[in-house]
Amino acid sequence: MKKTANEMRKDIIKMTNAAGSGHPGGSLSSVEIMTALYFKIMKHDPKKHDWEERDRFILSKGHACPVLYSAMARSGYFPVEELKTLRKLGSRLQGHPDRKKLPGLEISCGSLGQGLSIAAGISIGLRMDKKDQRVYCLMGDGELQEGQIWEAAMTGAHYKLDNLCGIVDVNNLQIDGFTKDVMNVEPIGDKWRSFGWHVIEVDGHNLEEVIKAFEEAEKTKGMPTVILAKTVKGKGVSFMENKAEWHGAAPNSEQTETALKELEVY
């Protein structure tokens, strides 16, 4: 799985380089979370994307779609080769996910703050039908500045949606700088706890810890769980790490070569 995670990092660098734009920073920080979900935790069938019994994954931080596309390709939804079409005219891999173009996506997204509400709706619907699948929703820490997240947080706790698991990729950065400087979202854990959620804090780059957190979430009954994954924006590529400017910029050819070399030795 660690190898897969590393391959996904390389995918993210290559695909954003080929596109000439995109969001490598917040994709790289989410790699272990996505690896755990797509290769260990979630019940899903890449050959039958609309399998009714599948667990659901909702990407709320839509700009991090390179990591999602990579996870989908590497788990078998479509050929890895197709990743290089990212953001190109006619591609199924839109700059932000379009569920009507790419089978296997649950929703179209890109406008921040909307995913958790959708995930809550799925959780409510599954429960109405007495189904036991789980629903996962990946958010960014900057995204928590959106008010709708907290509307959905209320809904999750009010309806005791224990089939719902939120994950916050806490990489501390957003486009304009550090979240604590732009608009402080801390204390994140206390906020979720006070809204009635079970909170688990982990090192978001430690696969074992991330997997254990998902297992704990599944065992938690009577309330939804949120995993706060402490991460490094741009993780794995030294010149991208902890740099806000790599939120929405693609590496050029030289930078791509340097990045891939670093990832080779990983």
Partner: peptide
């Protein structure tokens, strides 16, 4: 009932639609 939260309501509805409601 979602309370006074129209944005959340719209998202919940979309989620419900994904499971055939």
């Amino acid at each position: 009932e979602v309370g006074i939260s129209e944005q959340d309501m719209m998202g919940i509805a979309a989620g419900l639609a994904t499971v055939g409601k």
